[in-house]
Simulated scan of single mutants.
Amino acid sequence: MTARRLSRTRAAVASAAVTAAALVLAACGGDGGDPSHTGHGSARAASPSASAPAERGGHNAADVAFAQGMIPHHRQAVDMADMAADRASATEVKELAAAIKKAQDPEIRTLSGWLTSWGEQVPGEDASAGHSGHGDGMAGMMTPQEMDQLEKSSGKAFDTAFLKLMIKHHEGAVAMARTEQAKGSHGPAEEMAAAIIASQSAEITRMKELLGTD
């Protein structure tokens, strides 16, 4: 009996040693991943906010509100940008609309991915446009009437309406992003908020120049 117990003890110790070694190797392997998978390069990968959100408390209610609000907000901007393809007359307006769509489509996918990973509801497609009326109370969102009027216009009238409405829309997005920066805890969401503030503030300046306003 003593020999048997000794044999079992030795086997258990050997098994524990193998398990510990495997855990160490797994931990070391995690540090050698390709930084390109973060989408932001090696400098961003090394950032605590990007690589270790759990250490900062993961996400909070402000992060969820930011994602759930920005998705329909971005979708409406994309809807407006789509109208410019065949309604705008100025090349600058068409180019601006294309840039808005190119930037915001990927952000919608990223925001949706965060909500899914957090076990939170992703806003449905019907919450995106003013036609549905779901976003009327959100910062900068167009009303159904404004979206209908924009859709029915063309040429220079469309250009003017598009620029005025998109300025208002961008200002709403910037306000939402500033709230995320002040109250959010999810590092990547705060980084997206900073990017939105920078890019959309620059676009607001450009749109005002096209309108000839300050």
Rank of each mutant, 00 (worst) to 15 (best):
M1V: 08
R4N: 03
L6Q: 11
R8T: 11
R10F: 09
A14P: 02
A16D: 02
A16H: 03
A17W: 06
V18M: 06
V18A: 13
T19Q: 09
A22F: 13
A22Q: 10
V24W: 12
C28F: 13
D31M: 08
D31I: 01
D31C: 04
G32F: 10
G33M: 08
D34T: 09
P35S: 06
S36W: 04
T38Y: 13
S42A: 15
A43W: 13
R44A: 15
R44F: 13
S47F: 02
S51T: 13
A52M: 12
A54Q: 15
G57T: 08
G57Q: 08
G58D: 04
V64P: 11
A65N: 08
A65Y: 08
F66K: 10
F66W: 14
G69H: 03
M70N: 06
H73Q: 07
Q76P: 09
A77I: 02
A77F: 04
V78M: 00
D79S: 03
M80S: 05
A85F: 00
S89P: 01
T91C: 01
E95Y: 00
E95W: 01
K101E: 00
K101N: 02
E107S: 00
R109Q: 11
L111S: 08
E125T: 13
H131I: 03
M141F: 04
M141Q: 05
M147A: 11
E151S: 14
K152T: 05
S153C: 03
K156M: 07
A157N: 08
F158S: 09
D159M: 03
T160L: 01
T160K: 13
F162Y: 15
H169I: 01
A175K: 15
A177N: 12
R178M: 12
A182Y: 07
G187M: 06
A189G: 12
E191W: 04
E191D: 07
A193L: 05
I197C: 09
A198Y: 10
S201F: 04
E203Q: 15
E209Q: 10
G212L: 03
